[in-house]
């Protein structure tokens, strides 16, 4: 899978408080999970492109490219849902063979779920590309009241990962140099991963111990009352963004309902 990373381009979205962005993203996603028709989620996807272009200075082509893998997922979602969805009375059958019955209704739910995944992914890409990981952790400590000991430990771990990836390669090459060849087949793959995972994790634990000692010796988290090197602030545009996200999401649902398109998670579809 492609890993999308933070790009240091100044934009309105970039200047927003990371916790506020996280909450806005969460709000949109939760509203989206109520939708079960194949048209409404497309409005959310379009919304992500507009917000990206206007507020996030994210080129639409870049956003579209990042969504490519999800269209493959959508094909499988459509097929499996057509076959396995709890069929409502009078469902339109496309194809039937033995215990399998594919229906139009099922396929449409599958399409809706696939579009939902794409919409959530689009907002996720916007979030990650406009948020500095360090700022996110600072904001989680200062605004979301996550315990500093845990949050900064997470940041330290995050910073450690590139070193671990290098170590993984070093251990692999060292084992090769000593003439180790993994046996063939899936079992061999497992044996090789195990041989690599243990030394790499053991190395990570040793690093962690040194890091903990260094942090303790500097009095890290020794006192409950602490100051911050960089303080993150929550300003009125952050509140506006959060409210705006909720209002926009509900407006899409309302407009869709007014046109008779919207289909919520109804009893007819549930267990």
């Amino acid at each position: 899978m492609t890993v999308f990373t933070y790009s240091d381009v100044d934009s309105w979205l970039r200047r927003r408080n990371p916790t506020a962005k996280l909450l806005a993203h969460l709000t949109i996603t939760l509203v989206l999970t109520l939708v079960f028709d194949p048209v409404t989620p497309l409005a959310f996807v379009a919304g992500a492109f507009v917000i990206g272009a206007v507020l996030g200075r994210t080129p639409p082509t870049r956003l579209a490219a990042s969504l490519l893998p999800f269209w493959l997922l959508s094909v499988s979602l459509v097929v499996t849902n057509a076959l396995f969805v709890n069929q409502p009375e009078g469902a339109t059958v496309i194809w039937a063979w033995g215990p399998f019955t594919a229906t139009v209704e099922g396929a449409l739910i599958g399409l809706s779920l696939a579009e939902r995944v794409a919409a959530i992914a689009a907002f996720s890409v916007l979030f990650v590309m406009s948020t500095d990981p360090t700022d996110l952790v600072r904001s989680l400590v200062q605004q979301a009241r996550v315990p500093p000991r845990l949050a900064y430990a997470a940041l330290a771990g995050y910073r450690l990962l590139p070193a671990l990836e290098r170590e993984f390669e070093t251990v692999r090459l060292a084992q090769r140099l000593r003439g180790y060849r993994a046996p063939a087949g899936p079992l061999g793959w497992w044996v090789e991963q195990r041989r690599l995972l243990i030394p790499v994790l053991a190395g990570a634990v040793r690093r962690t111990d040194r890091l903990a000692l260094a942090m303790d010796s500097r009095g890290f988290a020794a006192s409950r009352r602490r100051t911050h090197y960089r303080s993150m602030s929550w300003r009125w545009p952050d509140t506006a963004m959060l409210l705006g996200a909720l209002i926009a999401a509900l407006t899409i649902l309302a407009v869709s309902a007014a046109f008779g398109i919207l289909q919520l998670w109804t009893g007819a579809l549930s267990v």
Partner: peptide
């Protein structure tokens, strides 16, 4: 013997929090 403070009761030391975090990131 490794210079770090023993866990007292059931509270976390810095190294516990760090180890959990590093494992979590991996």
């Amino acid at each position: 013997d490794r210079g770090s403070i023993e866990p007292h009761g059931q509270s976390w030391r810095t190294r516990d929090a760090l180890l959990i975090a590093v494992l979590a990131v991996v």
